[in-house]
């Protein structure tokens, strides 16, 4: 499975949280979890809710430490001990979290340019790029709205382009379209594929939605119930560009959907 070109690789990753007061041990959330992501690959990971998908991405982004195992970034070993964490790996790994995590005291435009500001990269060029992204996700005209004045879907889109705007080579996404309605979701998925096709970034996309996992990914990993391991792997042969408006009709979709559904039972 591993290859020298892998953008990101994890080997035998395991995680358990500190025991709760009055409890001697807490259960393993991840155990022996291994996979790798190729350069410019769109990898989707599908698992039931509560299986540890968010926990996994928190470890990959180094927001949280691992209990065991290792991670390699472009072949280089990364220390995953809690004391040595380097969140985002110097802006090489972007993370679109499950919650939008917009800053409530900043307007939309200040929120989406926040990483650029932190990195000292806010200039005319990046601002022009930002305008393009705002347009792509239909947020033009809301620049000066505060997050509480936006709908859930708009906030989600804002958090998505906040990460896309600073162009990290690897992007982790945690059910980014979980909380939006069906039509908007299809639109956002289509936008994401288009943006990905333009920049060809490496994406690790986590979801509990089997259809979404197959429709978007080059490769689908199936996670077991807790403790999570990779139990199946599928290469998605559906050619790109894919028309997501009726992906149920795409060649080979139905069979794979049935297979994954049974694997998750």
């Amino acid at each position: 499975m591993s290859s020298p070109a892998a953008a990101l690789e994890v080997r035998r990753l395991s995680k358990r949280f500190p025991p709760r007061p009055g409890q001697s041990e807490s259960p393993w959330v991840l155990s022996d979890l291994s996979f790798c992501v190729g350069d410019s690959e769109f990898l989707t990971i599908v698992g039931p809710s509560g299986s540890g998908k968010t926990t996994l991405l928190n470890i990959l982004s180094q927001v949280d430490g691992a209990s065991g195992g290792e991670m390699l970034f472009r072949g280089e070993s990364i220390n995953l001990a809690s004391a040595a964490l380097n969140p985002g790996l110097n802006c090489h790994i972007g993370y679109v979290t499950q919650d939008d995590n917009l800053l409530p005291w900043q307007t939309l435009i200040d929120n989406v340019t926040f990483p650029l500001k932190l990195q000292g990269r806010l200039n005319q060029e990046s601002m022009a790029r930002m305008q393009g992204l705002l347009k792509a996700v239909n947020l033009i005209g809301f620049d000066h709205y505060y997050p509480h004045e936006l709908s859930g879907g708009m906030r989600k889109r804002a958090s998505l382009i906040r990460t896309l705007a600073y162009d990290p080579p690897i992007i982790l996404m945690d059910e980014p379209f979980g909380a939006v309605d069906a039509q908007t979701r299809t639109q956002l998925q289509q936008d994401l594929l288009r943006l990905w096709n333009l920049g060809r970034k490496t994406i690790v996309f986590v979801t509990h939605d089997i259809g979404e996992a197959i429709a978007l990914g080059d490769r689908v990993l199936v996670l077991s119930r807790s403790p999570a391991r990779v139990i199946y792997e599928h290469h998605v042969a559906i050619p790109r560009p894919r028309d997501l408006s009726n992906f149920y009709k795409l060649e080979g979709f139905g069979d794979m959907y049935e297979t994954v559904r049974k694997e998750l039972l």
């Binding site: 969140p87 993370y95 600073y166």
Partner: peptide, 11 residues
């Protein structure tokens, strides 16, 4: 979570 977001973004 906001702190983590900012750290990942390079803060």
């Amino acid at each position: 979570r906001l702190v983590a977001m900012a750290r990942v973004a390079g803060a």
